[in-house]
Design a protein around this nucleic acid. Structure first.
Lengths: 352, 352
DNA sequence: GCGAAATTTTGGAGCGCTCCAAGATTTTTA
DNA sequence: TAAAAATCTTGGAGCGCTCCAAAATTTCGC
């Protein structure tokens, strides 16, 4: 690959002049400029290599996006939620003329990826592994975390998940539901985990802040209806597990109201209900969580605890790009009532 | 920001030793290593800056993805098709341990983005503007183009769109349809363009290779049924235009079979049909194009000309990452018959 | 036609790092 | 204990570029 010097040599001018031809052509006499351009063409020189500029300028003009949890990028894009995150981050980058780098990383390579990513800052999806935060801090780049509060010196944006969970339960309770089931998120790999009625808080509450808040919200609102969360079956499935829906119906046959922790899960529940001939909302009500675009398109359309996912990620990207003093933002949620929730069946006919 | 030299100075060792501490710690005596690490901690040095390494190593270990057409990244992620492209490219990058950079670019900034993107290669979505190809060539980096054939010296992957279009028409003709409408893609910004029956080929065939091939396929298969494409109304809408569906029903009220050029468009047609109380496939049959995951989830599910979008993008990424000799690949398509196509209504009741 | 002013061109410094041959130190061997 | 071997540390070169002060050249005014 020829360099500025090679072109200069060929054209009989100095490196500086060649650089000017490409970056500030108005500074170079037209005649000379043409000579240089001809030499560049002859050598197959396609303009200054960004690598050199980079070192001088010191910034990549890019921010890195680490997908939530242990997702691979491709899985994130598949997920309704992750996809909207990406849209938000991308639109902020677009607006700022920055590049969005999708930083992948298995559990083994994540740290190295963070150390070596060619970016000026990071957006971290829901962070499961706290080492990730330490690793990013070490690079002394601006960053923002989604759905985890990492202290006053770190940008973070989370939703008011507790209120959302409360709203979901109240809505269902007001409709008359008494038999609930919770479809929660398993943050490790593996098949569904089933917590049968009688489980203890400790088994449930371990883990991730967002999930914790939602469970607390469920618990508090169930208490308002004189119900204990300990009597509600809780199933944990990994995001994207296509069997989430069948796990619920298999393990919670008497539930009339299923509360989930993501629209994606709720959608698998609707799919499975259709497959089994279970009427939603006639026999079972289903509530999603997230408020993705997909939730509005299901049959029946999905009642869900919605928030502005795109806006959340956009804000995160803006925080990183602006690199101001750290902020912790809590975003509101809103229960969007659609077609997947209704009164419980008045007589409780046995379901198969 | 402290540098290797600063740390070396503070620890009383040379730059080289500090570099070794971070990159090949086994080469440094434990005692010294600790002294260096302590100095680094004290200075807040978080490890070697990737910028320096980069210049030395010469590669970014990243490939750039330019969205199809004039999409912004966010729009691409929103689109069912673009999203699957992204999944494919991301999974290949994941597998290779490379980063995927989403290179944005408005019409004005695209060239500059290409010139300066910090990547080792490019995937170009459907290229509308031929200058983009020239611009990428100038950087002398490996690249692959989707849905455009740019000659034997350029990697390209396209689908056998003509066959797909033919299969769609034959399927509908075999069901008995005689009155078709085509929902085509407008590759410039603006509202729907309506070509009423009697239009000329020239008005239609201008533009983008992929669309051209599909129209030719439609034309050929219509001819088999003794129909001329000139008598078939053609509507062009931009990708993602939510009014695509209503444009079709407004302008083609007698059509019993609507052939589209993307699942996204077809989905808006289904939505609009539901809104207007038009039964699909009872009154109108609809065929999509692409075979996205969304097409399987609509109500009714969408008959569509499918191909392996994820695989296409994955292959493109692999071509770029491998940097072998250029190949031109044509991928097969397959008509997937689902619920959105059926016999035309036997009596032709007027629709409102 | 000459000096001053304006315009063009030059090449060194430096961005932060890795590599590597050479030098310094420690350990082993006879 | 001295020489040989093994181990550890050093600092220069170089990656390709941009910036900038200074030098070279051209243009201008009278």
């Amino acid at each position: 690959m020829p360099t500025l010097d090679d072109v200069g040599l060929a054209a009989g001018v100095s490196r500086g002049t060649v650089s000017n031809v490409f970056n500030r052509p108005e500074l170079v006499r037209p005649e000379l400029r043409e000579r240089v351009e001809a030499a560049a063409r002859a050598l197959g020189y396609g303009g200054p290599d960004p690598k050199g500029r980079l070192l001088k300028e010191g910034r990549f003009n890019a921010i890195g996006f680490m997908p939530p949890g242990a997702y691979a990028i491709a899985e994130m894009v598949r997920s309704p939620y992750g996809r909207e995150l990406l849209m938000g981050a991308a639109s902020a980058c677009d607006a700022a003329g920055a590049t969005l780098s999708l930083v992948n990383g298995t559990d083994e390579t994540r740290m190295a990826s963070i150390r070596e990513a060619l970016v000026d800052g990071f957006i971290l999806g829901n962070v499961v592994d706290i080492d990730v935060v330490a690793s990013v801090k070490r690079r002394r780049l601006p960053f923002a975390i989604l759905e985890s509060d990492a202290g006053a010196d770190v940008n973070s944006i989370r939703i008011d998940a507790r209120s959302g969970a409360i709203a979901a339960v109240r809505h269902l309770a007001r409709l008359g539901h008494k038999r609930f089931a919770i479809l929660s998120i398993r943050r490790t790999v593996g098949p569904a985990i089933v917590h049968r009625p009688g489980h203890t808080d400790r088994a449930l509450m371990a883990g991730f802040a967002l999930d914790h808040q939602r469970l607390q919200g469920f618990e508090a609102a169930l208490a308002e209806a004189s119900l204990s969360i300990a009597d509600v079956p809780v199933i944990e499935t990994t995001p994207g597990d296509p069997h989430a829906g069948s796990a619920v119906f298999d393990h919670c046959p008497q539930a009339t109201a299923i509360m989930t922790m993501s629209d994606w899960q709720a959608i698998t529940v609707l799919d499975e209900a259709r497959r089994r001939g279970i009427d939603v909302p006639g026999q079972v009500s289903v509530v999603g969580f997230d408020g993705t675009a997909e939730a509005a398109r299901t049959m029946p359309s999905l009642t869900t605890v919605a928030h502005d996912i795109v806006g959340k990620a956009r804000l995160a990207a803006e925080m990183v790009l602006e690199n101001g003093s750290p902020r912790q933002v809590v975003m509101p949620v809103e229960l969007v009532v659609r077609g997947s929730t209704g009164k419980p069946p008045s007589a409780f006919p046995a379901r198969k």
